[in-house]
C-alpha cells in the first residue's frame, strides 16, 4: 500500500498543460532529447556509463571461451543480462524469480525493457556471432553484456541501448591462436586485443503519447490532437498514456518497432515519428563514434607521451 509514485492531480494537470504549450518541466520542447553523456571507464575495455539527465545506466562487456549450442556449431554466444534492481528506484522490486507472475506492473515493465533490448541488439544481429567461433562445435567466444540500472528518471530503454552498443563497440577480446584443437589465449600485453565485429549500430528512440482530449475523441475523432513527446523523464513517463519504441540504425533500417496499446495514434503521425527518430539516431551514432575516437586517443597517447617526455632520463640503464 502506498508503495508507488504518488503523483497528485495538480502535478498531472500542470504537466499536461505545460505539454500543450510545448514546454516541459526541465525547459525542453516536446521533441528534444536530454543531453546524453557517455563515459568510458579508462581502465578496461567495454565498460561504459551512460547518463540521460538523471537516468543512469552502466554496461560491462565480458567474454569467455565456451562450448557453442549444438544446433549452431558455427556461432558464438551472446547474452544480455538485464535485471533491474531496486537500486535505481524502489519502484522496481526485487525480482521474484521464475515463480513471480507478470501480474504486477513492476515486473511487466521489467520484462518489456529487457525484451526490447534483447530484440534491438541481439535479434537484429548487431554482433556478428559467426566471428566468435573458434573451433566449430566445440569452442567459441561467449560474450556477455551486463546492464546495471543505476538511477531511474524515465526512458531506461534508450539509455541502455546506447550503453550496450557503445560498450560492444569499445570492447576488445584477447587475441587467440588456434592450431588444431589447441587454443592459445594471449595476454593483452603480449598481443593487442581484438575488437568485436559489429555489423550495425541499432539505437532506440522512445516516444510517449498524451491525450489532451477525452477517450472518445481519441478513438472516434478526426482531430489527431495527441501530443507526442520524446525522452520522457520520470513524472512524464508515469503520466503517459502509451508509448512507442522504435529501433533504427544509421542505414535507415528499422530493427524493431513496438507500440503496444495505449492511445490510438494515426498512421501518418507514426510515420512522422519514425522519420524523426531516424534523425535522432544518426546524431546519437555520430556522438558514439566521437566518444569512442576520443577514448582511443587517450588510450594510445599516455604511454607514448611518457616515453617522449624530456624528464625521462636518457641514460642507458
Amino acid at each position: 500500500m502506498g508503495l508507488d509514485y504518488n503523483i497528485s492531480n495538480n502535478e498531472q494537470q500542470f504537466v499536461l498543460d505545460a505539454l500543450k504549450e510545448n514546454t516541459r518541466l526541465d525547459g525542453r520542447k516536446l521533441l528534444d532529447m536530454r543531453n546524453v553523456e557517455i563515459q568510458i571507464f579508462p581502465d578496461e575495455y567495454g565498460h561504459v556509463d551512460v547518463k540521460l539527465g538523471k537516468t543512469e545506466v552502466a554496461c560491462k562487456i565480458s567474454a569467455s571461451i565456451e562450448q557453442p549450442y549444438k544446433d549452431r556449431p558455427f556461432e558464438g554466444l551472446f547474452q544480455i543480462n538485464t535485471e533491474i534492481s531496486p537500486m535505481c528506484s524502489p519502484f522496481f522490486e526485487v525480482s521474484q524469480g521464475a515463480s513471480g507472475g507478470t501480474s504486477s506492473r513492476q515486473t511487466s515493465e521489467e520484462i518489456l525493457i529487457s525484451r526490447m533490448i534483447e530484440k534491438s541488439v541481439r535479434r537484429s544481429n548487431a554482433l556478428d556471432l559467426e566471428n566468435l567461433c573458434l573451433v566449430a562445435g566445440s569452442k567459441c567466444w561467449s560474450v556477455r553484456a551486463d546492464l546495471h540500472f543505476l538511477n531511474y528518471d524515465g526512458n531506461f530503454i534508450d539509455a541502455s541501448c546506447i550503453a550496450v552498443m557503445t560498450a560492444l563497440l569499445h570492447f576488445k577480446r584477447p587475441d587467440v591462436e588456434v592450431s588444431g584443437d589447441d587454443i592459445v589465449v594471449f595476454d593483452t600485453k603480449q598481443r593487442d586485443p581484438v575488437p568485436l565485429s559489429i555489423l550495425h549500430i541499432p539505437l532506440c528512440v522512445t516516444f510517449n503519447f498524451y491525450n489532451p482530449n477525452g477517450d472518445e475523441e481519441n478513438i472516434k475523432g478526426e482531430s489527431n490532437g495527441e501530443l507526442i513527446v520524446v525522452d520522457t523523464n520520470l513524472i512524464e513517463e508515469r503520466l503517459s498514456l502509451g508509448s512507442m519504441t522504435i529501433t533504427l540504425n544509421k542505414n535507415q533500417e528499422v530493427c524493431q518497432l513496438l507500440k503496444s496499446g495505449g492511445l490510438n495514434i494515426d498512421a501518418s503521425l507514426i510515420m512522422n515519428c519514425c522519420t524523426y527518430a531516424a534523425k535522432i539516431v544518426s546524431q546519437l551514432t555520430d556522438q558514439i563514434h566521437r566518444v569512442l575516437k576520443e577514448d582511443e586517443h587517450k588510450r594510445i597517447n599516455p604511454t607514448e607521451q611518457k616515453e617522449l617526455q624530456t624528464v625521462n632520463s636518457r641514460e642507458a640503464s
Partner: peptide, 18 residues
C-alpha cells in the same frame, strides 16, 4: 497527496514509497 480514505480518515502520502 491524498491516496485513499477509510472511515473518517484520509490516507496521505508525504513521500513516495513511504
Amino acid at each position: 497527496v491524498i491516496i485513499g480514505s477509510f472511515g473518517d480518515f484520509y490516507r496521505v502520502s508525504l513521500n513516495d514509497f513511504s
